[in-house]
Nucleic acid binder design. Structure first.
Lengths: 162, 162
DNA sequence: GCAAAACCGACCGCTTCGGTAGGATTTCGT
DNA sequence: ACGAAATCCTACCGAAGCGGTCGGTTTTGC
């Protein structure tokens, strides 16, 4: 598995928040019931999302969580990274602050790491897929069941979009 | 991390075999020394590659391993899959024998899994990167250090190819 | 027969995963 | 003022995988 259920649960959580159009906060409890996920576990996940400033919280009775930004501006690379940590295909891979990709094997020496080509391509593939998908898209995609034949076919087509 | 060092070590092993042009088998010991990896651990990895029919072995003195096919015909999706197991972004994802992608959440019901769009895109990104890279490419890319400026620039360019 | 090699299975310390538990704190409604 | 509802925080726990080691068996060339 590329990702653990942390990403899965966390993305579902974000989608659930994205469904709520108004500014009223959504309680974790209602999310847990809607998605049938353990509340206590969601608490851990939402904490990461909050630290990454993807959601905001209001405490106390009738409190809950809201998206920190409009769903159109939230891309999945930020969400998954908040939940799973740095996204890299391999242990030796890390991004410099400037965005360059480095492999710890190819230090000072001249000979490049033999596997770098492969992992760079994988990295590109994943980040393009994640950064190219917005929360708004997922909310729209999983909209309530008003599916005419045309809608179903449109959905089948959009999967391959990027 | 998307992948563990099993993929890293295994790919390096394959590259090492790919470097040997002749049909003489390469002993694991020489691979371990060349790549500075623990021999006993490589034994486990090469066993998976053998079961996947990516390498062949000859036992006894002066034995070792060879590629089962020419390096041009070995794509990295087969190698990584042999080492890491089924490649799927999420637990609930599995491919049917016909190649269709299924999510175990969306059984009989009508409402599609809300995260399917995302994971399908990720899956596509990864498999395209892996299947689009051959062992021959990696062997070529990490060729001995005859690097003129032109070669270095050519290598920098090919990373973004796909 | 000896040495070199592939094979095989058991074991081990460590970290992560998925989840639970118990409590502390904040806030709204009455 | 009080209690319910909610976020917040920390600790813990069993299971599984990771990265590796070890000891031994079998095959084969010289």
């Amino acid at each position: 598995m590329l990702f653990s259920t942390k990403a899965e649960y966390g993305v579902r959580l974000m989608i659930e928040l994205g469904r709520q159009p108004g500014s009223t906060p959504v309680s974790l409890n209602s999310v847990a019931e809607a998605e049938r996920l353990p509340l206590s576990y969601l608490e851990h996940l939402v904490a990461k999302l909050r630290k990454a400033e993807l959601v905001t919280s209001t405490r106390g009775a009738h409190g809950g969580y809201r998206l920190a930004k409009p769903a159109e501006e939230i891309t999945m690379d930020a969400v998954v990274q908040a939940l799973e940590g740095q996204i890299a295909p391999m242990e030796c891979f890390h991004e410099t602050p400037e965005g360059r990709v480095l492999c710890s094997h190819e230090g000072d020496g001249d000979r490049a790491c033999s596997t770098k080509l492969l992992w760079t391509r994988v990295q590109n593939g994943v980040t393009k897929a994640l950064a190219g998908t917005t929360l708004a898209e997922l909310v729209e995609f999983s909209a309530p069941q008003g599916h005419s034949d045309a809608q179903v076919r449109a959905k089948a087509a959009v999967v391959h979009t990027l």
